[in-house]
Simulated assay, not measured.
Amino acid sequence: MSDPAGVPGPGAPGEARFVHIVDDVPELREGDAPVLIHALDGFLDAGNAGAIAVRHLLAGDAGRVVASFDIDAFYDYRARRPPLTFAEDHYEGYEAPRLVVRLLRDLLGTPYLLLHGPEPDTYWEAFAAAVRAVVEHFGVRLTVALGSVPMAVPHTRPVMLTNHASTTDLLVQPNVWKGQIRVPASAQAVLELRLGEWGHPAMGFVAHIPHYVAQVDYPAAAGRLLESVEIVTGLEWDLEPLEVAGQARLAEIAEQIEGSAEVRDVVLGLEQQYDSFHHPDQDATLPLAEERNLPTGEELGAEFERFLAGLDSPEE
């Protein structure tokens, strides 16, 4: 008999070949009921917010791998070619992609699970079923997704989040968005949908990244995501390094904007729009609808290219 997703449930032969779960994990005592946090590289990672959050959680202690997924089944090597080194006359240093679940501990010593790696390119339903096996094997009490998308918001205001969940009682705040909107699917979104159908609590947060810096690291969003995870899970981390990195990035952005009147004008409009969302009683109209001498799309595109060129790339 199939699950609502149309795929076999845990224990089915087809599922076992997609994930290997470590049986002997003495660090998890019976009844621990850990949280599973997941952040995948790919579609939902504007500003590399999820990737930065993962690096922060793994800093100092990468923990123990307690489950690994069959990367060959999920990864499109030609679309995202892994790097290797050509050294004079031979190849070496191949960095094979990995999709794993690690067992980590927070500042208080509380164990939790972290699923990270590239977003699956194929077999999303099989991936969801494989994660379900991990959830049920370790008695996970809550699954939390981290993501980020580019939005028309200014860097000069606090990072906004959209929260979502398989049941409304898991939501922690009202969203700015009202009504419905059709969006491209992601493996993380499908995972949350399926886990909810299978009776496992699942939720997540999506950070809004200023669209003009969505291609560079934005540590402030990573810190905001982990702060929200702390609230809903009770886990605790030292987030000061992310705060410091976020302030440094904002200083760099401010310095670059000083040299561009066009970008400053757009940021001002975004600030007014942001404030109108948070104080709708003050003005029912969006300031961006006012008549202004804004630059054309082509002019802004060229200006933003120069703006981004002045910021450090993620690799740097």
Rank of each mutant, 00 (worst) to 15 (best):
L171H: 04
L146S: 05
L113I: 03
E125L: 14
E119L: 00
A202K: 02
D106Y: 10
V216Q: 07
G223V: 02
G117I: 11
H200M: 12
P150L: 07
A128H: 03
G196K: 09
V149Y: 06
R157V: 05
F127H: 13
V172S: 12
V140C: 05
P111A: 06
D169F: 07
L113G: 04
G196D: 04
H116P: 01
Y218L: 09
L193E: 09
A185M: 07
Y212I: 07
V144H: 12
V140I: 08
A152I: 04
A165Y: 05
R105Q: 06
L142N: 03
L171R: 11
W124F: 14
A207S: 09
H208P: 00
P210A: 09
W198M: 11
W198F: 14
H211W: 08
L191S: 00
G204I: 00
H200L: 14
Q215F: 12
V183S: 11
P184M: 01
A202V: 04
D121T: 04
A129Y: 05
L161W: 02
L161V: 07
L191E: 02
W198Y: 15
A214M: 14
P111F: 12
A133V: 10
V135S: 08
G179P: 13
A133S: 15
Y218I: 10
T162W: 00
V206A: 02
Y212M: 06
E125N: 12
H137I: 05
A152C: 05
L193C: 00
L108I: 00
P118M: 01
V134K: 11
A185C: 02
L171Q: 06
A221F: 06
S148M: 11
H137Q: 14
P111K: 12
Y123L: 15
G199R: 07
W198H: 12
F127T: 10
Q215N: 12
R194K: 12
G117V: 12
G147S: 10
P184F: 00
E119M: 02
V172T: 15
V213N: 08
D121R: 03
L170N: 01
M203A: 13
A129I: 03
Y212Q: 08
A165K: 05
G199S: 06
A133E: 14
F138H: 08
F127D: 08
T122W: 13
A130L: 11
T162A: 01
L191T: 04
L108V: 06
F127E: 10
L146N: 09
N175Y: 14
M160Y: 01
S148W: 02
A133Y: 03
D169N: 14
A128M: 07
E197M: 14
I209Y: 04
T168P: 14
G204S: 02
E125Q: 13
T156G: 04
R194W: 14
D169V: 11
I181T: 14
T162P: 00
V183F: 03
L161R: 09
Q180L: 14
A221V: 06
Q173Y: 13
S186R: 07
G199D: 10
Y212E: 07
P154D: 00
A220V: 03
R141S: 10
A207P: 11
R132W: 13
H137M: 06
A202P: 05
T167V: 09
T110P: 01
L142K: 01
E125S: 13
L193T: 12
I209R: 09
V176E: 04
